[in-house]
């Protein structure tokens, strides 16, 4: 497939994630939208890693053109997993303190 189909698809998923962060007020759903944005970026990185694979595979005998990009995606997944565990712990603590997951109650820095 042409690369710009993947670009448009990843941009659409990213924009849906941004829209979710802007419109929803449940902290867990905002967090899930952040995960969606991370996955859109991962999809775009994998598509870019395969962009020149057909041309460059003739020169590289090992055939691992673009493996660095996929290692990068792997590390993004690692960091996302660590981030989710800490973030969900923060949301649980927030629920325990204010008995809600509405982010609009977290406005104490405003006053």
């Amino acid at each position: 497939m042409p690369i710009h189909y993947y670009i448009v698809l990843a941009l659409a998923l990213f924009s849906i994630g941004v829209t979710g962060v802007l419109t929803r007020r449940n902290a867990i759903i905002i967090f899930m939208c952040v995960e969606l944005m991370l996955n859109a970026v991962n999809l775009l990185l994998v598509a870019f890693s395969k962009m020149h694979a057909a041309k460059l595979a003739a020169f590289d005998m090992a055939g691992n053109v673009g493996a660095e990009a996929q290692i990068f995606v792997f590390f993004i997944m690692v960091v996302a997993a660590a981030e989710v565990s800490v973030g969900l712990a923060i949301i649980v603590m927030m629920y325990r303190n204010i008995h809600s997951v509405d982010v609009n109650f977290l406005n104490r820095l405003k006053h």
Partner: peptide, 27 residues
Amino acid sequence: LRQVEQSGADKAVGEGNAGLIQNLGMV
């Protein structure tokens, strides 16, 4: 991004062995 799509020759293909677990593990 419409401006840079003019070349149109860049394709993401399902070829190349970079995504296989052996090559990724070696890297």
